[in-house]
């Protein structure tokens, strides 16, 4: 199982094109969106645009890399029959999902760090050392939830359906979770839904730290719940996959 995790990481690192775009995309997006913003606080958050978007773009970028990347690659691997071959080994379902999450985490960590570097150097975001570390680690660990979701989608759909489905999940989650614009700017009913989405809880980890506090237990519990749900679902789908993709 550790060999598979190691191999998935090596393989992700070797895929230079994929690495480059996945890593470069979030900081670029951050600079485009937050680049022209002033330092006035966003109503209801107490954070300014540079700060707010640092967390949401780090989260958004990490999620893009792991969710879209994972689902498409897995669907492709199923089509090629590699997963069938893998199922003829003693590898348990959770081992497969763990390896995929590890591979995704390899991609998401540098992209998170780059967003933070861009925020610090270009936008002049200043935080305490513990805040930087807490945000980086929290955002990174939170990306595992979406990596697991990516694995599950890669299993639920196949072929041409993967991209539309993962895109739909992705945009809905990103928008409704408030990654694109601050939650407080959205209508109340959206906010009500949002509160229970993994994306909202995900970004909330970082914003809570930015505001100087610890992440809320509720947000962590929500993320953990989704993680268990997605990992369990993905592992189950891996074992149950009897379709000839």
């Amino acid at each position: 199982m550790t060999t598979l995790i190691k191999l998935e990481i090596i393989r992700a690192l070797r895929n230079k094109k994929f690495m480059f775009f996945s890593v470069i995309y979030p900081p670029a997006l951050y600079l485009i969106i937050a680049g022209g913003a002033d330092s006035k606080p966003i109503p209801g958050t107490g954070l300014n645009m540079g700060l707010y978007y640092m967390v949401s773009m780090a989260a958004f970028g990490a999620m893009t890399a792991v969710l879209l990347g994972n689902s498409e690659r897995i669907a492709k691997e199923r089509e090629q029959g590699w997963v069938r071959q893998l199922r003829l080994t003693a590898l348990p379902g959770r081992g497969y999902v763990a390896a995929k999450i590890a591979a995704a985490a390899t991609v998401s960590l540098p992209s998170i760090l780059l967003v933070m570097i861009a925020a610090a150097t270009v936008k002049g975001v200043r935080l305490e050392a513990w805040q930087w570390i807490a945000i980086a680690v929290g955002t990174w660990l939170g990306s595992f939830v979406f990596a697991a979701l990516g694995v599950a989608i890669g299993y639920l759909a196949s072929g041409d359906a993967v991209r539309p489905i993962s895109m739909l999940c992705f945009f809905a989650l990103a928008f409704l979770g408030g990654l694109w614009m601050p939650m407080t700017l959205l209508p109340q009913w959206v906010q009500n839904i949002s509160e229970w989405l993994p994306t909202h809880a995900y970004a909330a980890l970082g914003t809570a730290v930015e505001a100087g506090g610890a992440p809320h237990v509720k947000d962590m519990a929500i993320l953990l719940g989704y993680l268990l749900l997605f990992v369990g679902g993905a592992a189950w789908l891996y074992r149950k996959d009897t379709r000839k993709a």
Binding site: L7, I10, R11, R14, N15, E77, E79, Q80, G81, W82, R84, Q85, K244
Partner: peptide, 8 residues
């Protein structure tokens, strides 16, 4: 139809 893992 056993595909192989690519990139390794």
């Amino acid at each position: 139809s056993g595909g192989l893992m690519e990139g390794v």
